[in-house]
Amino acid sequence: MKKYDENVVLAIVLLLSMVLVAVDLLTTRDAHAEYGDVVINKYSEAAGMRPVVFPHWFHRVRFRCKVCHADLGFKFEAGGNEINMLKIIDGEYCGACHDGDLAWSVENCDLCHSGAPGTPTQVHESTLQKLVAPTGGKATE
């Protein structure tokens, strides 16, 4: 068997490792957990509150789509539902669960109104958003 210089082998392996790590660090940014996050800023900022961020991923772990989109009547459209705090307190929309029993209640303003100021209503990272504005605005950076 041909003898290899162990230092050369080690150097090659280390170099390969560094390349792999570098590639990793560069590609990590592609992972967007917030794909599908809905920002709702129809009335929030006008009323002096941060926009709402609705994380689809968190909710679909716990509920099938039909629970909100069939049973509760949420339309499949960001900003397409006339949601306001009165309705929520009354048990409609988010208020069906966010009643202090199944999920946190409305006193916890900042938990839902958690978006960066100035973020418009949107489905974050949607294919359409990426096609229309590939370089992204504030919200897609």
């Binding site: 957990a33 961020v53 978006g115």
Partner: peptide, 13 residues
């Protein structure tokens, strides 16, 4: 497989 934290995702304040 890492995901961005809410603090860094550019969407949350």
């Amino acid at each position: 497989a890492e995901w961005q934290t809410l603090k860094e995702d550019g969407l949350h304040d």
